[in-house]
Nucleic acid binder design. Structure first.
Length: 520
DNA sequence: CAGTGAGCGAGCTTCCGCTTGACTT
């Protein structure tokens, strides 16, 4: 018998099924050793040597694993293929001290061929990766456990600061200040309602003023009612003549399948779930074997699932919606480690009607299913007609849109209505039905929603899939930030703490601190 | 002699990232 250790018990069950009776698969339930919580646990005078303990929660796990390894011939460490996973494998050895052969194996997807292949090519623990994790851990501890007491002394008991949470607060505080100092700027737009001469009936369409004396008019160029009125006066006796018609076929491609961050964002905007709620629902779906792992930064899809998607698309929507060969996506997220697949249904034949846990589970599953299927559907083709219209020394433009082929839009993000223009030709004379001026004001930047903040953190490489939702919670629990109408805004204490940290520890709350840490 | 207050020491809070139950509301 061989013992295989993975991080997640749900994953373990699946893998055990693939490996058969010669293998027993157990879970470590995440990390099994960590720095002590009560003390710093870092010897700053001795090359920052970390002191590790086995947390109470992990003691039972370790006891079980020790017992099982005694009966096993060999130990396979199948923790995740990333920095934390490598460290967990290392700590498992340190905590168990197995007297059996140890093999480290890795895979990017939980499919039978991937697992069987992994078992065939074991390797040693990569100590460089382990050391990178230890450095990350020690640094986070030093930052968190040195800065937090500084705040207890200067501001209030129980406050906290850290590499990730303090930057999150900073983003929210600085956005709020931008909004506060924002001065709205007035500007005007001019819109003509036109129709084709002979016959005048029907075929009306709108055109926007875009040019003057052959030059583009800046959006903010017309600053007052007086300026706008002057344009209207100038155009009093103008003839409106079609000067140019351009038709372009544009392709619109589907979004990639979900990662943790995009799932949290989309479930927030489309379903109104908080990131915490989304993760809880996704966890349930995962534990029931309905979706792949939900804490991931990878856009990869197993070849088997690609094929399955193609079949579903051909069957449900017709083969012209299927792609001749699979579409691959590459992650743009800084520091992505891609230990898992993207988030997708494990069996694409299961549709949301069959999910009978709760209404919310059904909705989230439906979103994941559609996003996955759409990502392998053919792109949409949209004909865009741009009409330019000359009116004395001014120029107007109107854009028409016609969907030639809906492709993935049939399933995801819906169809926008066609914008119809009458049949026009260069030189056509148009009659003016109405000429209007509209007042506008520039808008301040928007406050962060949970999703927008997660997107910003991910873009900067700050935080990981497992910490986005907890980070949003902690900045609220500390009283730094509150949510109003779904938007995050700083409270006084959040602003005060931020200013103090920026003043005394500018390099640590710097937006690029994490990026530099990763590089170095 | 009761009440007040200064002074002192002990004990508590805290990070990020990996994972779920076992708790409480």
């Amino acid at each position: 018998m061989n013992l295989v250790i993975v991080e997640s018990p749900a994953k373990g069950k699946t893998i055990e099924k693939y490996l058969g009776k010669d293998y027993k698969v157990l879970a470590s339930f995440g990390h099994v050793r960590d720095l002590p919580t009560k003390t710093l646990g870092v010897d700053t005078k001795n090359n920052f040597k970390p002191e590790y303990v086995i947390p109470i929660k992990a003691r039972k796990t370790i006891a079980t694993l020790k017992k099982e390894i005694a009966n096993a011939d060999a130990l396979f460490l199948a923790t995740d293929y990333d920095r934390e996973g490598e460290a967990i494998a290392f700590h498992l050895i340190e905590a168990i001290k197995p007297k059996k052969p140890i093999k480290r194996i890795t895979f990017h997807e939980i499919t039978e061929p991937a697992i069987k292949e992994a078992i065939k090519c074991p390797r040693d623990i990569d100590m460089n990766l382990v050391d990178a994790q230890q450095a990350r851990r020690v640094l986070d501890r030093l930052v968190g456990y040195k800065l937090s007491p500084f705040l207890w002394k200067k501001v209030a008991q129980g406050l906290s600061a850290g590499r990730v949470q303090s930057v999150a607060v900073r983003l929210i505080v600085e956005r709020e200040r931008e909004i506060q100092k924002f001065k709205p700027e007035e500007y005007w737009s001019i819109e003509a309602l036109l129709s084709k001469d002979n016959p005048p009936a029907g075929g009306q369409f709108k055109a926007i003023l875009t040019e003057k004396d052959g030059k583009k008019i800046d959006k903010l160029a017309i600053k007052s009612d007086k300026d706008a009125q002057k344009v209207l006066d100038d155009l009093k006796n103008a003839d409106y003549i079609v000067s140019e018609i351009k038709i372009e076929t544009k392709k619109k491609y589907p979004s990639p399948p979900f990662t943790t961050s995009t799932l949290q964002m989309e479930a927030g905007t489309k379903l109104g779930f908080t990131s915490k709620q989304t993760m809880k629902l996704a966890q349930d779906l995962y534990e029931d074997g309905l979706i792949t792992y939900m804490r991931t930064d990878s856009l990869n899809i197993s070849p088997m699932a690609m094929k399955a998607a193609r079949n579903v698309i051909s069957e449900k929507y017709g083969s012209r919606y299927a792609l001749p060969s699979p579409r691959f996506y590459k992650t743009k997220a800084k520091g992505a480690q891609e230990a898992h697949e993207a988030i997708r249904p494990t069996d694409l034949a299961v549709v949301s009607d069959q999910i009978r846990i709760s209404d919310k589970h059904t909705k989230l599953y439906d979103l994941i299913w559609k996003r996955m299927i759409a990502s392998q559907m053919k792109e949409a083709e949209i004909d865009e007609t741009i009409v330019k219209i000359a009116a004395s020394n001014y120029g107007f433009a109107s854009t028409g849109q016609k969907i030639q082929f809906d492709g993935f839009l049939k399933l995801y993000n819906g169809l926008k209505k066609d914008i119809e223009l009458p049949n026009l030709a260069k030189g056509n004379k148009l009659s003016l039905e109405k000429l209007d001026k509209f007042q506008h004001f520039t808008e301040p930047p928007a406050r962060f929603t949970e999703g927008a903040l997660i997107k910003e953190l991910e873009k900067r490489g700050i935080g990981r899939p497992s910490t986005y939702a907890p980070t949003i919670s902690v900045v609220q629990d500390r009283g730094y930030v509150e949510k109003a109408q779904g938007k995050l805004l700083p409270k006084d204490i959040g602003m005060a703490v931020n200013d103090l940290l920026v003043e005394h520890f500018p390099n640590i709350v710097d937006y690029d601190f994490t990026a530099r840490l990763e590089e170095e």
